[in-house]
Design a binder for these strands. Structure first.
Lengths: 210, 210
DNA sequence: AAAAGTATCCGTATTTATACGGATGCCAGG
DNA sequence: CCTGGCATCCGTATAAATACGGATACTTTT
C-alpha cells in the first residue's frame, strides 16, 4: 500500500534528525522532503514531490512558518500542516491555527502523540491536545465577543500608558490634546472589554500586545 | 584518556534519544545516566556512577528540574548542570541560574552549541548565549536595584487590581479598609519601582507575577 | 455611495488614584 | 532584645482617570 508522504521543515538539524529517525521506524511513512527553512521547502515542493503531511516549525529564519502556511494555503491547499513549535503561548497557537494549521504540537511531543497527530490530521480532523486546546480557549475568552485590533495610534498610547505615563504626559509627548489621549484610551477599553486602565494593561499583556 | 561523563534527564524520550545519538558520534563523551525524571536520576546517582555534566530538562513530572538543582547543590556540588528548556522566558532563566545552573540552553539548540556549552562548562565557565543573556539582563533591569518579593496580601490585591477592581471594591471584597488597600498598592509600587498602577500591572506581567 | 474606522478635540461632573504625612500591633530575623 | 517586615488604619489635599455627552474631517471598507 501507499506510504504516507511526510515533509519536515525545521531549522534545527537535531530536531529534524530526531523526527526523521523516529518516523523511519515506521514502514508506513516516507519522508519526501526535509528542509531547514520555508524557502528551501517551497523550492523542493516545486520539484514535484508533494507530501500529504507537513511538520512545520514556526520560528525559522529566511521564511518563517507563518509565511509558509500562507503560501501553502494558496498554492498547495491539499497539504495538511501540523505546526510544531517551542511556544506554548496561546497567542502563537491561535495565530498558527488562524493561519491554516491542521494541528499544533509542542517540540517536547513524544512518539505516541506525534503519530496520533499525524493520523488524526490525515483522516481529515484537526489535532490539538488538551493542553493546547485549553490555551486556545483561554485566548478566545480573553479576546471577547468580537476581537478587534488596536489602531497604530492606540498601540502607541497603550505602550506609553504601560510605561507609567499619565494622560497629560502622553499628550505632551505626542503633541496632541489630553482629550485625544482620553478618547483613545476609552476606545481601547471598549475594544478589549475592560473596565479600567490596570485591567487594560493586564489584558494587553496576556494578549501579547505589549 | 578519560571520557567526559554526561547525564541526561528529560521526560521526553524523543529528546533524550536525540541528544544521546548526537553525543554518541563523539568518542570523548560517555553517557552514564539517562533518566526520565529527577527522582529516577537521583536514584541512579546513588548507585555511584557520577557524571561531570548534567543536561537537565526543567519541566518534568515527579520531580522537576529546579528540585533536582536544589538536591544536587547539597549532595553533589561537583556535578555541573546545563539546564535545557523549552522556555525562553527570562524569569525561567533567572530561576534556573539562581538555582545553580552553570548554563542554559533552549531545546532548539544545535549540535555546535551543545558541544560548545559542554566544553565551556567543563572548563569551569558558565555558558549562556547572547539571546539567553539578553533575556537575563532584561529581567535584571526589570527587577531593579534591590529585587523584593511581594507579600501574600500584596499578591492578592495585585491580582484584583489586574482584574479591574477599584480600591473601594477590593476593600469591600477583602473586608479591609480602603486605606489598607491604598497602603498595599503604594508599597508594591515602591517595591517594583514604578510610578503608577498601570506600570505596576505591566511590570508584574513582565516578571510573571500575574 | 454609504458606512465604519481613525484621529483629532471639547464641556462638565464624579470617581478614583496618588501624595504627603502619620499611627498600632504582631511576627520573624538578626 | 532590637530591628524590620507585614497587615492594619487614618487626615488632608491634589492629580488623574472615568463617565456622560458632544463634534469635525479624512481614510478605508463594504
Amino acid at each position: 500500500m501507499n506510504k504516507i508522504k511526510i515533509a519536515i521543515v525545521d531549522d534545527h538539524q537535531l530536531f529534524r534528525d530526531g523526527i526523521h529517525s523516529l518516523l523511519s521506524k515506521h514502514q508506513e511513512f516516507e519522508i519526501v522532503i526535509s528542509a531547514e527553512d520555508g524557502k528551501a521547502f517551497l523550492e523542493k515542493l516545486n520539484e514535484g514531490n508533494h507530501p500529504e503531511i507537513l511538520l512545520l516549525d514556526l520560528t525559522m529564519p529566511e521564511m518563517n512558518g507563518f509565511e509558509v502556511l500562507e503560501r501553502l494555503k494558496k498554492k498547495y491547499p491539499k497539504i495538511k500542516t501540523i505546526a510544531i513549535s517551542m511556544h506554548d503561548d496561546g497567542n502563537y497557537i491561535m495565530q498558527a491555527t488562524r493561519g491554516g494549521a491542521h494541528g499544533y504540537l509542542l517540540k517536547n511531543t513524544d512518539e505516541d502523540e506525534l503519530l496520533k497527530a499525524i493520523y488524526t490530521v490525515l483522516s481529515g480532523n484537526k489535532y490539538f491536545n488538551t493542553e493546547i486546546s485549553q490555551r486556545m480557549i483561554n485566548i478566545i475568552s480573553l479576546e471577547g465577543v468580537s476581537p478587534k485590533k488596536l489602531s497604530p495610534k492606540e498601540m502607541e498610547i497603550l505602550v506609553l500608558i504601560a510605561k507609567g505615563h499619565t494622560t497629560k504626559e502622553i499628550a505632551q509627548k505626542l503633541f496632541i490634546s489630553t482629550r485625544t489621549v482620553e478618547t483613545h484610551r476609552n476606545n481601547m477599553m471598549k475594544k478589549l472589554e475592560v473596565k479600567n486602565t490596570p485591567e487594560l494593561i493586564n489584558k494587553a499583556a496576556q494578549l501579547n500586545l505589549i
